[in-house]
């Protein structure tokens, strides 16, 4: 319908369908848009951050079909058909509430820019390994750059949550209280 020939570029958009934080979502992206661009700009899920744009810093980690992946290393079109969970989704669903509370209690964050990625890694780790030791936690975090904290409080927080979850799991159901 365009009157001027030089407006044709707009036709490059590709429709991508994803289940984002539990909701069916469709958006039109340029083929060169990365998943992090799409999440942040089009879906306004700004909790996912772009830090290095080469998969080194972990600020852009999201869950794709249940696995932590770098949203800066994928094109949005590659996520077509996938289930994406971002920090906003994990926070609202309550699945990382204990991690968030422990990070808060121990001040395992300062500027907060790395924090969504840290929580993604922590969530991923604890879903595979219920009782990681400190070395294992540090190893799991080796793709998450934090310039503020020095990491120790983050390691402490994850270790404490692992322990609390294990204790809770080992308790008889009737003994649990809230």
């Amino acid at each position: 319908m365009s009157r001027a020939g030089d407006l044709d570029e707009a036709d490059d958009a590709v429709r991508v369908r994803m289940v984002v934080n539990g909701r069916k979502t469709a958006c039109d992206v340029a083929p060169r848009d990365t998943l992090v661009d799409c999440l942040r700009n089009q879906l306004e899920l700004t909790g996912t951050h772009a830090g290095c744009e080469m998969g080194a810093c972990g600020a852009c980690l999201v869950q794709l079909d249940g696995r932590a992946v770098h949203a800066c290393l994928m094109f949005a079109v590659q996520a077509d058909g996938a289930r994406i969970d971002t920090i906003e989704g994990l926070a609202e669903s309550g699945v990382i509430a204990d991690l968030q509370a422990e990070f808060h209690r121990r001040n395992a964050l300062q500027c907060g820019f790395c924090t969504p990625g840290m929580l993604m890694t922590a969530h991923d780790l604890l879903s595979h390994d219920a009782r990681p030791d400190r070395e294992t936690i540090r190893d799991a975090l080796s793709g998450n750059f934090c310039r503020c904290t020095g990491y120790e409080a983050i390691v402490d927080a994850i270790a404490a949550v692992a322990e609390a979850r294990t204790t809770k799991a080992s308790q008889p159901a009737e003994g649990s209280s809230s």
Binding site: N41, T48, I87, A91, Q100, F103, G112
Partner: peptide, 21 residues
């Protein structure tokens, strides 16, 4: 005492200049 303003950041609700449109 923990930082009152840190909870937002833990929920991905920070508002950095990078996020502003």
């Amino acid at each position: 005492v923990p930082r009152p303003n840190a909870k937002r950041l833990l929920a991905g609700r920070g508002r950095y200049v990078t996020d502003i449109r």
